[in-house]
Design a binder for these strands. Structure first.
Lengths: 159, 159
DNA sequence: TTGTCTTTTGCATATTTATGCATTTTTTTT
DNA sequence: AAAAAAAATGCATAAATATGCAAAAGACAA
């Protein structure tokens, strides 16, 4: 399944390059070894929350919401990612492990992302319990976290 | 020419209502007495810098850049508008009059809008000189200012 | 493993959005 | 005021994007 590779790559491309159509993105992806159809991209972009904004000179560009985020916010995100040591699943819930003392800041960050997939979080000292809403699948939670904190899924401990 | 009424109305509608397609916006406009075609709307939205963003539940919505702006920023805009007493044209340039002492803050605001139509501004105590780039028509400058500070054109002193 | 259920994906196509061109309206110049 | 230039707009259509449906791939439980 390509999606777990594709989404992060799309995010990366969008931050590094000026993309103005899905076909253009499609070609960029292919040149990096990932190929799919425009239909799939359309769905990916929606899932990633990517918006299409006028570029001010007659064209359009695709833009990650982050672009509008302040440098401080981007900083925070990187910090949060660096502080997470692993993810494990148990009882249909998700446990995010951080280095000691960082759980509550991380939980706060996740809460504030405002994703409707997540009902809430409970943080100890180095562990966060992420509670998904009813009807949200494990897969949806993963994708959701991947959107909030790209690259996170690589820290998933398989059971 | 409807455009001077249409653009501000579009902005108003977008801040008040959730719009998810140009046709929907078209109908809303018609219900408020302004009618045009989808083609015109497409051009308007581009000019206003309106972007189309995933709404997080499978659909899309049109969003003014402002939506992403902080409340403080919106506050500032309202304040700036309230402080402008009039606009006059002279020698192909634009003079914006403010209440005394407010010119430089206003000029700063205009500069920071980052519009390419405007080369720069010079502020005194209660007057700002707005200098458009070569090749930018009076009309373009007006529209540009209308985008930065909606409602402004009503303060234009006819010559 | 086998069958069941969920997710991902492509294909074909519907829907939506953008645009070239011609026309009308507005602005600017003479 | 008349002529010339620029801008706005609609129409028809091109281009881009989204989506229903079916097939394939993967996850999961028994």
């Amino acid at each position: 399944m390509q999606k777990t590779k594709r989404l992060p790559l799309i995010e990366k491309i969008l931050t590094e390059t000026l993309i103005s159509s899905q076909d253009e993105l499609l070609r960029k992806l292919k040149s990096k070894g990932i190929s799919c159809t425009q239909a799939t991209l359309s769905r990916d972009l929606r899932q990633l929350g990517v918006s299409r904004v006028p570029d001010g000179s007659g064209g359009y560009r695709y833009s990650l919401a982050e672009k509008n985020a302040s440098p401080a916010e981007r900083e925070t995100k990187l910090h949060i990612i660096s502080v997470i040591s692993g993810i494990v699943e148990a009882k249909g819930l998700l446990l995010v492990k951080t280095i000691p003392g960082n759980a509550s800041a991380t939980a706060f960050y996740i809460d504030n992302a405002g994703r409707k997939e997540i009902a809430g979080t409970i943080a100890g000292d180095d562990t966060i319990l992420v509670i998904p809403h009813d009807g949200i699948s494990r897969m949806q939670v993963h994708t959701c976290l991947e959107i909030i904190l790209p690259g996170l899924h690589e820290k998933l401990k398989k059971s």
